[in-house]
Amino acid sequence: MIPAAFEYHRPVDVTSAASLLRRLGDEARVLAGGHSLIPMMKLRMAAIEHLIDLQDIDALKGISIDGDTVTIGAMVTQAELIAHEGLAKVAPILREAALQIADPQVRYMGTLGGNVANGDPGNDMPGLMQALGAAFLLTGPDGAREVAARDFYEAAYMTAREEDEILTAVRFTAPPGGYAYEKQKRKIGDYATAAAAVLIGKEGGRVAHASVAMTNLSDTPVWSPAAAKALTGTDCGPEAIRAATEAALADIDPTEDNRGPVAFKRHVAGIIITRAIQRAWSRA
């Protein structure tokens, strides 16, 4: 399993990375942690002539928490997300989710930026980012823009990112209330059979606001406003949870793979969503 040859670039700032991307066109790709890209290259499923390694770009690193605004650089690794105490205080769901991604070695290398830019429906962070209502910060040769995570994913491996844009950071507002990231997988190192991110705010014993998103249950992550609506204003009792789960299931379109057929996945998705809601509510 040997990748085809390529030219290697290691720019030190975002602008030069973006202009390299423009100059080299669709023969070029950026390389973050490489733990989605390199396996693909080894199978020679991706023909890439130029790799632009982002590791020396300081502007893509670091986590900043300003009041309740959290900004995470694209090159922050999953291990760094897990280790960051400040982040664990304001948005503990990131640690909870990141711990369920891959294994320790992969988490040292894999980045948040790579995970959300990749566009693989199996990646866990995109669904979580949709639940959080995060914005993705993109910089191209012509400047910077923001795209909402909820608008970013078009189909498997197809995103709103232009080919010459670099995802520089992810920004979201720290979610108040309870949270849960539930994931079923066959073993450590496996992608989700079904996973769900749930955020719930509680006021006066009722659901004040909620957000529900799912991973690996369609060709993109799925954010379900209908599920949130079914919860909002309720006491999050069995009835409400059932309604929310049903609403969420109406939004997914899983496919059969080695993890099992569609009927199984839909059933497990329902269980996972229900459990995520219950746990998020218990923490709200």
Binding site: M1, Y8, G34, H35, I38, P39, K42, L51, A79, D103, P104, Q105, V106, Y108, M109, G189
Partner: peptide, 23 residues
């Protein structure tokens, strides 16, 4: 060679990495 087994694990800059998945 597909970053699953960890037999190739080494330490790089203070991280455990699977050296089959690092150029």
């Amino acid at each position: 060679e597909t970053s699953h087994c960890g037999a190739c694990t080494v330490e790089m800059n203070g991280k455990s990495v699977k050296s089959c998945t690092v150029f």
